[in-house]
Design a protein around this nucleic acid. Sequence first.
DNA 1: CGGTATCCATCCCGATACTG
DNA 2: CAGTATCGGGATGGATACCG
Lengths: 127, 127
Amino acid sequence: MLELIAGKWTMLVLVALEDGRPMRFAELRRRLDGVTSKVLTQTLRALEREGLLIRHVYPTVPPCVEYRLTKLGEEVGGLVQSITDWSQANIAAIQVAREEFDERTTRRPAGSYGSEHRPTRSGDAPD
Amino acid sequence: MLELIAGKWTMLVLVALEDGRPMRFAELRRRLDGVTSKVLTQTLRALEREGLLIRHVYPTVPPCVEYRLTKLGEEVGGLVQSITDWSQANIAAIQVAREEFDERTTRRPAGSYGSEHRPTRSGDAPD
DNA sequence: CGGTATCCATCCCGATACTG
DNA sequence: CAGTATCGGGATGGATACCG
């Protein structure tokens, strides 16, 4: 499951479908903006395989294919959504942390990141 | 944030530290079992940069380094934990879905996965 | 102990072209 | 429209060796 989520587009698909409305391939593709059809297909197949979404084909010409989350998928979608929500809400704090970290690390020479090897005995470490 | 989480070990680190207890480098490494020190360092640095964890160095010889989640980190850790919890609880359902999918796909020849191109007009598709 | 440096396999993803 | 086929680059992660 963690491996699945690790995919670059997986979470975005989950969030896009999380409102319960089924979406067609092209619509999904536009909404994700940047994904190629190949990769989108891969992502959707992987989600389908885990039982998180259903692929429904209307046998028309040209074909019309709809994707919607299963119950399982909506559950995961909700959890993923909560992460993206949290991220949005904390962008500012994260940005600050990043800048502080970068300043901390770019200022000092490479070697001084670790301990300053002051000759102390190990006994000083906490339990 | 999603990119960060996408890292192979990031979520595991978050979960490992989620109980609030600080952990040392080697302890983390054992607990994750399989990660190399290089990759673990990369993961920890990335998390530190986003402000999700603190690295504390006791300047002893040999060095002792502790990692603990920040407030931000614990929040994300909780969310990630909820995903892993969900995964555990639904392993069975996912396993079934996988087997059904694999059977569905291995049985038919490659071409028949899509629509069966019955010559129907597009008008038959739903709105 | 807690890293870093280096090299390398792999794998994910993207671009492009083509199809029923 | 909704894919598949093929190719290739770049990032990610692993193995190994070494260091303060």
